Amino acid sequence: EDAPSSDDLEQFAKQFKQRRIKLGFTQADVGLALGTLYGNVFSQTTICRFEALQLSFKNMCKLKPLLNKWLEETDSSS
């Protein structure tokens, strides 16, 4: 699987934040939901840093598919 470019990540982080707010979730909600869904709880700080593009590139790449999946799950259930 190709690693996303930093442009991709930036684009995704923006879209993710907009969708999250529109769906009415806090950063902490998302962190907990990831724990429920995938067994990895993320702190509010981590989600905040992801949205602000302040995580390392490697961590951004790791989180992106999880957050993407969460969006898909959340979209389909709302």
Score class of each variant (00 low, 15 high):
62 K>C: 08
6 S>C: 15
36 T>L: 09
61 C>K: 11
40 N>L: 07
54 Q>L: 05
40 N>K: 15
60 M>S: 04
42 F>I: 15
71 L>M: 12
55 L>F: 06
29 D>T: 04
60 M>Q: 00
43 S>R: 06
66 L>S: 01
43 S>W: 05
13 A>G: 01
73 E>Q: 13
37 L>C: 15
56 S>C: 04
8 D>E: 10
51 E>G: 07
1 E>G: 11
25 F>R: 06
14 K>F: 05
6 S>K: 15
14 K>L: 09
48 C>D: 15
69 K>P: 02
27 Q>D: 01
61 C>E: 10
13 A>I: 05
28 A>P: 01
67 L>E: 00
44 Q>P: 14
69 K>G: 09
5 S>T: 14
66 L>H: 05
44 Q>S: 12
40 N>D: 13
18 Q>P: 00
73 E>A: 11
8 D>R: 08
58 K>E: 12
41 V>F: 05
76 S>D: 13
38 Y>F: 09
21 I>M: 07
18 Q>V: 06
5 S>C: 14
9 L>W: 05
34 L>W: 00
61 C>R: 10
69 K>S: 06
3 A>R: 15
12 F>H: 06
44 Q>R: 10
21 I>Q: 08
69 K>M: 09
70 W>Y: 07
4 P>I: 14
14 K>M: 06
20 R>M: 00
7 D>E: 13
14 K>A: 13
70 W>R: 02
9 L>V: 10
32 L>H: 13
40 N>F: 08
33 A>R: 10
34 L>I: 03
22 K>F: 06
14 K>N: 08
63 L>N: 10
45 T>A: 11
39 G>E: 06
66 L>I: 13
18 Q>K: 14
43 S>P: 12
26 T>D: 01
34 L>K: 02
30 V>A: 05
78 S>N: 15
78 S>P: 11
17 K>R: 12
24 G>M: 01
12 F>P: 04
8 D>A: 08
37 L>I: 14
50 F>W: 02
16 F>Q: 03
32 L>R: 14
16 F>G: 03
64 K>L: 04
41 V>H: 15
9 L>Y: 04
14 K>D: 01
16 F>I: 03
8 D>L: 04
10 E>N: 11
20 R>Q: 02
12 F>C: 00
73 E>H: 11
9 L>P: 02
53 L>Y: 10
47 I>W: 05
12 F>Q: 01
22 K>I: 02
23 L>N: 04
3 A>D: 09
58 K>I: 11
45 T>E: 15
71 L>K: 02
64 K>E: 03
72 E>V: 10
54 Q>H: 11
34 L>A: 05
50 F>Q: 04
55 L>S: 06
76 S>H: 08
18 Q>I: 05
11 Q>M: 08
22 K>A: 13
61 C>G: 04
30 V>R: 00
8 D>S: 05
44 Q>K: 13
20 R>G: 00
14 K>E: 11
62 K>G: 05
39 G>A: 05
9 L>G: 02
73 E>W: 09
4 P>E: 11
11 Q>S: 12
47 I>S: 02
68 N>V: 12
58 K>W: 06
57 F>P: 12
52 A>W: 02
28 A>H: 07
34 L>R: 01
72 E>Y: 08
67 L>K: 01
57 F>E: 09
34 L>T: 06
57 F>V: 09
76 S>Y: 04
7 D>Y: 14
35 G>T: 15
54 Q>V: 04
50 F>P: 04
65 P>V: 10
29 D>H: 08
62 K>I: 01
29 D>A: 09
5 S>I: 07
3 A>E: 11
63 L>Y: 05
60 M>V: 02
68 N>A: 12
